[in-house]
Simulated assay, not measured.
Amino acid sequence: STGTGEYEGRGRQAAMRYVGSLIPYRVAMHVRADSRINSITDLKGKRVSSEFNAQKTIARIIEAHLANMGLGYGDVVKIPAPNVVRQAEDFMSGKVDVLFFALGSAAIKQANASVGGLRVLEVGTSPDAIKRTQALLPGAYVMQVAPNPALDGITKPTNLIAFDMVLITNAKVSDDVVYRVAKALHDGKEDLVATFPPFALFQPQNMAKVLEGVPLHPGAMKYYREIGLAK
């Protein structure tokens, strides 16, 4: 909304409004299961995808993982990639040593089958580690993920970086429309999960959590006040 960072030069988006927080987007750095890389700190001097000219936020998220453990892009060998698809191809062909992707994604399943297994690199949970992460990725947090057959690379409870997927609208959208959308989401978890299984992680009671820099739409605020999620 501020027109900074990857959106430099596009101007401040003053009409942007927040409707609510939905589900955590869990991301991780993956290595081959037989790799000698056992932690993010071991990535020093290793080949890591960079640039991402077609998906600039990906480079920032990878940098946040490195920063979590006190590293930066200056500590690794940067291998430019335009997007995450090319990055996955480079990982499977051995051109890079680590693969960043959303946990449990189709690309991770493909890479897991291609290289004979993956292993997720855990992030740090100290206040300093989280502070370094959030300096690059505001709103990010660390969550622990348990082993699950659907999640390749997770063999034990593992701390990962996550950030919330949120619903954004425009200030010009009517209060009534946004009110009804917020209510439908809050009351409709069962239907949402049936349509898109990752909504199993949806916590309706967290919909009104603060999104730094983006004000709640009045229609959403009205609904959250009615049900006690906002004052």
Results as ranks from 00 to 15, higher is better:
F196P: 08
F91N: 04
A14R: 08
D176V: 14
A15N: 12
V210E: 15
F163I: 03
Y224A: 05
H30W: 02
E89M: 13
D90F: 13
P198V: 01
K231H: 12
S21I: 00
M221E: 13
P197N: 10
V177L: 13
A162W: 04
V177D: 15
P218G: 11
G11C: 08
V96M: 05
D34A: 15
A200F: 10
D175L: 03
Q134W: 02
Y73D: 03
F202M: 09
E226V: 00
G74R: 05
I79H: 10
I227E: 05
E51R: 11
F199M: 15
L185S: 05
L185F: 15
L160W: 10
L121N: 10
G139D: 13
V214N: 02
Q205R: 13
L99K: 04
K78G: 00
V48R: 01
Q87D: 13
S105Y: 09
F101L: 12
P147D: 09
V173Y: 00
Y223A: 12
A14F: 11
Y25M: 14
V177I: 14
K209A: 14
R119G: 07
A220G: 08
R60L: 14
N83A: 05
G124F: 02
G219W: 04
I61A: 06
D187H: 02
K95S: 11
K183P: 08
K156M: 09
R26D: 04
T125E: 10
A182R: 02
V84W: 11
G74D: 12
M69D: 14
G5S: 09
V210Q: 15
V76A: 02
L103A: 13
N206K: 15
T169M: 06
I227L: 06
E226W: 02
Q205K: 15
K172N: 12
M221L: 14
P197I: 13
L99A: 03
Q203E: 15
V145K: 01
D175Q: 13
I79L: 08
V77M: 05
D128G: 02
A106Q: 14
A67V: 07
E190Y: 02
V123M: 09
A140I: 03
P204E: 05
A111Y: 03
N53Q: 10
D175G: 06
P24N: 08
G94S: 12
Q203D: 11
G124K: 06
A15V: 00
G5Q: 06
S35G: 05
N148V: 01
V27H: 07
E63F: 00
G9D: 06
P82D: 12
L118W: 09
G117H: 03
T169H: 07
Y223C: 07
L216I: 04
V19Y: 00
I154Q: 00
V193F: 10
R32L: 03
K183E: 14
D75T: 11
M221N: 10
Q55S: 12
R132P: 10
G3W: 13
R10V: 06
M92V: 12
F163E: 06
Q134D: 04
V76F: 08
V193M: 10
P198L: 10
I37W: 02
